[in-house]
């Protein structure tokens, strides 16, 4: 029977993969529920592996950040700084993946043992059942929302309000077309 590798007392019932900082290799840890919970690796009732691995992200990115002085990097789309990412373990927008790609890839390698997605790409909504008209509106909508994220970040509230109005308008028109 495995004893908890942290407290050495209770029965280990949770298996956690963590990243060993020295060797940079994944390491299996057998922990009791209390220790797993305490280290923030276990969540209640609906456990998510994301929580479990958050600790790994932090430890890995800390190392990377030192090597590259990456703390100064900030996402120009959403304003997320590298420091914020370190604390939260969450990105602020989809562009963050490119902004921080140098840091992301070693992290992905450690967490997933891979750097690239394998599997089907999504079909574009416009390829099926959508008229060209709607496809164009949809494209505009995405662009408007990106601009809005930037405007909010820059605290340009006038611009943000204008963009919101336009978004509502475009949504309405899409609704008109698709509802027949």
């Amino acid at each position: 029977m495995n004893k908890c590798q942290k407290c050495q007392k209770a029965r280990a019932t949770v298996l956690v993969t963590d990243i060993d900082l020295a060797s940079h290799k994944p390491q299996q840890l057998h922990l009791c529920e209390d220790c797993a919970r305490e280290t923030g690796m276990a969540a209640a009732l609906s456990p998510s592996a994301a929580e479990m691995l958050k600790a790994s992200i932090l430890s890995v990115t800390e190392k990377e950040s030192k090597a590259r002085s990456a703390q100064r990097i900030m996402c120009e789309h959403c304003g997320l700084t590298y420091q914020e990412f370190r604390v939260k373990g969450r990105f602020g927008c989809t562009a963050c993946y490119d902004t921080f790609s140098e840091l992301v890839e070693p992290l992905l390698e450690k967490v997933h043992g891979a750097r690239e997605h394998k599997g089907e790409a999504p079909r574009k909504p416009s390829n099926k059942r959508k008229t060209t008209n709607v496809a164009e509106f949809e494209k505009e909508l995405v662009e408007l929302r990106r601009k809005l994220t930037r405007a909010v970040k820059a605290e340009d509230y006038e611009d943000a309000a204008r963009l919101r109005d336009r978004i509502t308008e475009v949504e309405r028109r899409i609704g008109e077309v698709t509802d027949g």
Binding site: A49, A50, L53, K54, I57, G89, R90, F91, T94, Y97, D98, V104, L107, L108, V111, H112, A114, R115, E116, H117, K118, G119, A121, P122
Partner: peptide, 15 residues
Amino acid sequence: HSRYGYLTSCPTNVG
């Protein structure tokens, strides 16, 4: 994302 797949808040769910 053409390289990373479906993008998620936390990189532990990406792909």
